[in-house]
Amino acid sequence: MVKKLLLFTVWCLFISACAPVTSSNVGSGQALPQGGGNYAFSNFVLINNKALLRDLQITDIKSKMVNNLMQVQVQVLNKTSRTFPFEYSFTWFDASGFQVVGVGEHWTPVIINGNEVKSLNGVAPTGEATQFKVQIRKAK
């Protein structure tokens, strides 16, 4: 009994130290048609959380070229009636698939209200960027 209790405590400590990680990729980046357009949503958005995959829906992805820079708009629908936060980040790639690094790249916090549609907007840091990927994750 004593051994069992000690074992259980050690197990609890182990579990508390290692938070469970859920990961599910919606898709991977692909080369975009030149000059912008609408895309299959799943190819450009990566959501690494099961709850967010269930609660959020990508309703539209658009892009256009402005001043020779790719401008992207991703529309996200909150399918629930709850308000909750999440974070997103744009990553840009050149035609060869190499990452184009901008200045001060970061995760942007967003609060989405119940049944609301939010636009996540990104502009490529340089004219070299012709592909993108949006990562969405749970707010910490």
């Binding site: 401008q71 200045v103 790249e105 970061h106 995760w107 942007t108 907007n121 990104g122 502009v123 910490k140």
Partner: peptide, 28 residues
């Protein structure tokens, strides 16, 4: 690039978010 919410004061995420929004608006 992590979202920082340690205190209410102006922080790195605020700076990055502001800079990104302004740069995007100017570039287009």
């Amino acid at each position: 690039g992590e979202v920082e919410t340690l205190t209410l004061e102006f922080g790195s995420t605020d700076l990055q978010t502001i800079a990104e929004k302004m740069v995007q608006s100017l570039l287009v």
